[in-house]
């Protein structure tokens, strides 16, 4: 187990290097001069361009620039935002928890919906539960999240007036208010993941139920409840774990859209605003943070998988 974890950790090193390199290279991808792009046409006179070029180290060869960039990252320096004139790290730190909360509650929503629904659908195949679950899953997978978000805003916010549609509750607000602000964004962000996981849970529970060990257990006279929960589910949920890890990236990408729609003050909205203002250091910072978050989640899921499934450990 420890051996596996060490090996898995080692494989993330080249990935991390690759990520930082791509994020670093984003500046040089810009057509024409990145600097005049950042300054805008009015302020891009020769003196300003020269000053910013030196400030960003763009007069150095690319490998020295990369080394400088990496050195900065390791000391917690992601550069300064051009529009806000503040360290990118500070701006991300202020919003990081908000995105974490939104991602966590969306994940919770997706799991609470998809697991019971997928299991019930598999267990009562071709019943109304099964058809209902398939329909919901199809909706979740096919509805564009920005569209779902706006529909929910129109119905529950504007027409019925049940739920708040903008922003986050302040820290002094009661828990109830806090949760009410979370509902619409979390449902919107979690619905895609819920759809994918419902379909997957259903098919993998179905597959597990058709295995020999389930037939053996039933033949032995083990109760149905125990067959389902102890024998079938344990095996069925393994692929669900992996898929969850892989799909978490979709959730993070969706956060950029959902935070923008609901004015949720997180890293996703920061990224979208950075793109609107062409604030390249800020774009680099937010992209990097999202990638690191995703790498971390995949890492944890992989290690969890081995912890759950002893067969892999001995290979």
């Amino acid at each position: 187990m420890t051996g596996y974890i060490v090996r898995r950790l080692l494989t993330t090193i080249p990935v991390l290097l690759g990520i930082t390199f791509i994020v670093f290279a984003m500046v040089s991808l810009a057509p024409g001069d990145a600097i005049s792009l950042m300054l805008g046409s009015e302020t891009a006179n020769v003196a300003n361009v020269e000053r910013l070029r030196r400030e960003l180290g763009l007069d150095l060869p690319w490998y020295e620039q990369y080394l400088r960039y990496m050195k900065g990252l390791l000391t917690g320096d992601m550069g300064r935002s051009i529009t806000y004139k503040r360290p990118v790290v500070d701006m991300i730190r202020e919003r990081f928890n908000n995105t974490l909360i939104l991602a966590a509650s969306s994940t919770l929503f997706a799991l609470v919906i998809s697991l019971p629904l997928g299991i019930a659908a598999a267990y009562q195949r071709r019943s109304w539960i099964d058809y209902g679950a398939s329909t919901l899953a199809m909706l979740g997978v096919s509805l564009p999240s920005f569209y779902l978000g706006l529909l929910l805003i129109i119905v529950f916010g504007l027409n019925l007036g049940w739920l708040p549609i903008r922003g986050m509750a302040s820290r002094s607000a009661s828990l109830g208010t806090y949760i009410r602000h979370l509902i619409l964004p979390s449902v919107t962000l979690g619905s895609g993941l819920a759809g994918i996981l419902t379909r997957l849970t259903r098919s993998s529970v179905l597959e597990a139920l058709s295995q020999d060990y389930v037939r053996t257990a039933r033949a032995k006279g083990v109760g149905e409840r125990k067959v389902l929960y102890k024998h079938a589910l344990r095996n069925a949920l393994l692929p669900v774990t992996t898929t969850f890890g892989l799909q978490f990236g979709g959730l993070l990408g969706g956060a950029a859209i959902i935070e923008t729609i609901f004015s949720w003050p997180g890293v996703g909205m920061l990224a979208v605003n950075a793109v609107k203002q062409r604030d390249i250091p800020l774009i680099q910072g937010t992209t990097l943070v999202f990638a690191l978050g995703f790498v971390l989640v995949t890492l944890v899921v992989d290690i969890l998988y081995v912890a759950i499934d002893p067969r892999i450990r001995y290979e």
């Binding site: 990935v15 690759g18 990520i19 791509i22 994020v23 984003m26 500046v27 991808l29 810009a30 057509p31 990145a34 990236g249 979709g250 959730l251 993070l252 990408g253 969706g254 950029a256 859209i257 990224a271 979208v272 950075a274 793109v275 062409r278 390249i280 774009i283 680099q284 937010t286 992209t287 999202f290 990638a291 995703f294 790498v295 995949t298």
Partner: peptide, 15 residues
Amino acid sequence: AFPFLILVIGVMAVL
């Protein structure tokens, strides 16, 4: 390793 849409947005921003 990148969340798909985040990378797409980032590159679109630059291009």
